[in-house]
Design a protein around this nucleic acid. Structure first.
Lengths: 334, 334
DNA sequence: TTGGATTAGTAAAACGTTTTACTTTAATGC
DNA sequence: GCATTAAAGTAAAACGTTTTACTAATCCAA
């Protein structure tokens, strides 16, 4: 059963295709179509359940009302929650989201950009990784709205929304030190993205500022794509072989692995051992004792992202790039 | 900067558009294009970075290589994990996923179906809700491949993949009874979907089969869209006012709320009080003691979904509907 | 009464592909 | 040497819209 086209409607209403198109697009008044015709056509559209073919529309107009969202991994709760918020807000403005996960692979990221390009998405919301600078530049050169979130690429001049990773990390360490901790470890990943580097820098700077010597043996860089069991082994080794009284985990999934280690080796969180996790997770609130965490302001991030991108989409003017850095919140639990 | 079209390539190569199209689509041999021309054109395509406009392609061919995924809520870990797996597998076959969350609203679900329809997605993967039967029927009548997962709509004759909710629930209760529990509560939701009903039925049947009288006061139906604080209050009331020695939570987020209550009222899980959660969650493994859980076979579900849908997409033949029920696994933790 | 403005509407081009039906040239068989 | 077939390729229609440029009729002012 073929679906209806604008032509079918035009024939039924005994008017031209043009007229129907004007009516559909709310230009009837402006194009001086009579009230009678408008009503007739609208009635027919209503009754027949006709919906314009978006593909044809996109081809003609050059825009798709689709926003491409490129993230690391939709199954990570940080991203899935952001995605949900963005989807929600975009939806209300008539935009759909089409998303894909890069799994931190440069090749996949490039492929995704190409794919979105050939689908003519109207805008790109990207949590970027190093290595795709050229591709992003091409997008920008072609006049596509592009916004980064969570992470930034320093060489690229485009809008960005993210948490203040440096300060969040700095304050976490301050908090440890305030509790009298001296041997503070950092468990982070080896992916070379700005937000991870900033968390590292904040860690280092806080130590320095407090006169504690930075010891690279207390920093564990986990390889991004490795199996969790391996991560667990490495964290276990760290905890068993080094004298450590506090650990900052640079991502929530690393903290989850860390908690598994603690359970396994039966090490308790308490007065003589503390941890803080970056990015909240339901497991942290429920844990006994509660796990302190750096909470990123998801709602605010999503809101700013969508606000900036919609503004760029509506005003054809060349976009002034905005950099929005939102403070993260340290939640102390116990 | 306009992007290249097939025409630009044709001009550069000094051949016709048709020829370029044949080459792009791998029909060069079959259409007897000479090796020399093929090479020349391919070189130009390669060098220029030309990518066919998918929109134009879709318009002409009538398919989009996009599969629409309609779920309840992408930020729920069950769905985001499934989504990731489906995305992954679809991607490998050249299909993209475009997803949206219904938030359990019939209106939103209908809107999404319409939106996907006007975008001419090639297939629909849906975790359905009651009230959209008519819309689904229309999709099927139009010859669209549609597959349900996680939940089924009994009136609709289409493929379905899901866990064996009835048995999973039944076994959970059996397990409680095996531990000597007698006053077993069920915390579930009021949404009227098959999988929730089955979990309820399994609960009831297991009680009956063991000669325990079903007591409706021990069943708490939480309103789907209410705030978590309210849910927590209701669960707290249930636990405080009724004599209960075991609780089955019908979804993971209900169990999370339940755990928050336990923490709040300082009730311990142990010999005289047990719980089981439906759908696993990272928090459950980490919890002390570990929370027993009904684990849905995500990987298998995703795999079956994508296998069935791809088969339907490749063979134009009218699809034989498949019903795949996969056993869930009860994981006992402590 | 005339000619510019307004009203009401339409024909046709364009967006970038795919695909059908066609042409031209060369090769082959007898 | 002529008819047939194969090889190599192309012109043009079609997909379903939007939009530009146009027409025809009516109205109004001078």
């Amino acid at each position: 059963m073929k679906s209806l086209s604008i032509k079918d409607i035009a024939v039924k209403a005994n008017v031209s295709i043009t007229t129907v198109s004007f009516i559909i697009n709310g230009k009837a008044k402006e194009k001086s179509i009579s009230e009678a015709v408008i009503e007739k056509v609208e009635k027919i559209i209503e009754e027949s359940g006709y919906k314009p073919n978006q593909i044809a529309r996109s081809l003609r107009t050059g825009n798709s009302n689709i926003i491409g969202l490129i993230i690391e991994d939709i199954s990570n709760s940080f991203f899935s929650r952001i995605a949900r918020l963005i989807e929600d807000k975009a939806y209300k403005k008539g935009y759909k989201i089409i998303y894909s996960s890069t799994e931190n692979s440069v090749d996949k990221a490039k492929e995704l950009i190409n794919m979105f390009k050939s689908r003519k998405v109207d805008a790109y919301i990207i949590s970027p990784i190093k290595g795709i600078e050229e591709d992003i530049k091409m997008l920008l050169d072609d006049g596509n709205p592009v916004i980064f979130f969570d992470r930034n690429l320093p060489d690229i001049n485009t809008s960005y929304v993210g948490a203040d990773h440096f300060n969040a990390s700095y304050q976490s360490i301050q908090s440890f030190i305030g509790q009298g901790k001296k041997n503070i470890a950092l468990v982070t990943t080896d992916i070379n993205v700005e937000q991870i580097v900033e968390r590292y820098d904040g860690y280092k700077k806080a130590l320095e500022d407090n006169g504690i010597k930075y010891d690279e043996n207390l920093v564990l860089k986990i390889h991004f794509n490795q199996k969790e069991s391996e991560t667990i082994d490495q964290i276990e080794t760290l905890l068993q072989t080094k004298k450590i009284d506090a650990v900052l985990f640079a991502t929530n999934y690393l903290a989850i692995s860390g908690l598994k280690v603690l359970k396994k080796i039966n090490k308790k969180i308490g007065d003589d051992f503390a941890i803080i996790a970056y990015d909240d997770h339901e497991a942290f609130e429920l844990h006994t004792p509660g796990i302190s965490t750096v909470q990123q302001p998801l709602e605010e991030i999503a809101e700013n992202v969508i606000k900036i991108i919609l503004k760029q989409l509506s005003s054809k003017a060349n976009p002034e790039n905005q950099q929005v850095i939102i403070p993260a919140k340290l939640i102390i639990r116990d």
